[in-house]
């Protein structure tokens, strides 16, 4: 068995999602090659060579891969595919854009956003927005898979793989990269933040939310809220987390003065670590929290801010 992992990178280094995808690949087993496609991406190739478990780094450095255009990148992957039993990529917007195109070109099915490897041909993935988990098996000769980053740990970085160039350029001329605007970063986006700190009705008013802002800016976190806090007018609607708000799954979710109604949990229960600060020891939020602090938030939050 041999696996090709299409890397997610920024030309100079790798994105974490690549490291988690390599962990998933190593659970399948076999040789792992990493493909770095891009324009001026040698730095990323160097970084990939250091990941433990990687045998070979293949670099396709050409202007036609700028912005990882789906048509060209898929053609590139397809041209290399005959050597592999599995083709994998992180389930990022790039991975999701490119791999299904690869699969259809190879006339095989694809598996999106897997959260578990059961065996070389059997995987777990969520369906119905995470409300069910399906175990699915592939009968295809080549398995094309995208991997959910939060479901796997990061691969270690003490390897030394060889680096080789893929020189053939696949410019299909179907699309052109016309620019990119990076999301404004003065406020961390709720849905992509690594840490989210949310306030509920316990915050009492909008001024008190500045306590959370302070903690957030120290942690590089985004600030969210419960519906009760939004309805009371403490914060705008787009900060609502939950069934009818945003769905978040950060590494760390801190719920402050939130009781933990099921409709709120629906928006954050897949967070890696949940912390609850609430003065009511019976609040349902403690049933899902990894760490609970039974305390008045007006004492605890300033303390937290100072300790950071």
């Amino acid at each position: 068995m041999s696996i090709l992992v299409l890397a997610e990178h920024d030309n100079t280094g790798l994105k974490e999602a690549t490291l988690t995808t390599i962990t998933a690949a190593s659970q399948i087993g076999g040789d792992i090659d990493v493909l770095i496609a891009g324009d001026q991406c040698a730095g990323a190739a160097e970084a990939a060579a250091k990941i433990s478990g990687v045998s070979r780094v293949r670099v396709a450095d050409n202007a036609c891969y700028k912005g990882l255009l789906a048509e060209n990148t898929a053609a590139l992957v397809v041209s290399l595919s005959s050597e592999y039993s599995h083709i994998m990529a992180p389930a990022t917007t790039n991975g999701k854009n490119i791999l299904p195109r690869v699969a259809a070109s190879l006339d095989v099915s694809a598996f999106s956003d897997i959260i578990g490897v059961v065996s070389a041909d059997t995987f777990k993935r969520t369906i119905y927005a995470g409300n069910a988990i399906a175990t699915v098996q592939s009968e295809d000769t080549i398995k094309v898979i995208t991997v959910r980053g939060t479901a796997f740990s990061l691969a270690e970085q003490n390897g030394s793989a060889s680096i080789g160039a893929v020189t053939e350029a696949h410019d299909l001329g179907l699309s052109t990269f016309a620019g990119e605007s990076v999301a404004k970063s003065d406020r961390v986006e709720l849905t992509s933040a690594g840490i989210v700190i949310s306030g509920g009705r316990g915050m009492q008013n909008s001024e008190n939310f500045s306590m959370l802002e302070k903690v957030a800016s120290k942690l590089g976190a985004a600030v969210g809220a419960s519906r009760a806090a939004v309805d009371a007018g403490f914060v705008p609607n787009d900060m609502q987390v939950g069934q009818t708000g945003k769905i978040v799954a950060p590494d760390l979710y801190i719920a402050v003065g939130i009781s933990g109604a099921i409709q709120h949990l629906a928006g954050m229960k897949d967070s890696k670590v949940i912390v609850a600060i609430n003065k009511d020891p019976d609040a349902p939020i403690f049933q899902v929290a990894d760490y609970g602090l039974v305390d008045d938030l007006f004492d605890a939050v300033p303390q937290l801010e100072q300790a950071l």
């Binding site: 095989v108 099915s109 598996f111 059997t122 969520t126 369906i127 995470g130 409300n131 069910a132 988990i133 399906a134 175990t135 699915v136 098996q137 592939s138 009968e139 295809d140 229960k269 949940i274 020891p281 403690f286 049933q287 899902v288 929290a289 990894d290 760490y291 609970g292 602090l293 039974v294 305390d295 605890a300 303390q303 937290l304 300790a307």
Partner: peptide
Amino acid sequence: KIKTLKVESPNTRQSGEIVGSVA
């Protein structure tokens, strides 16, 4: 070409521990 072997409910989270202080 895809066989669905099983469909399950996601694991419900277990409650963790209560800590004594911010520190």
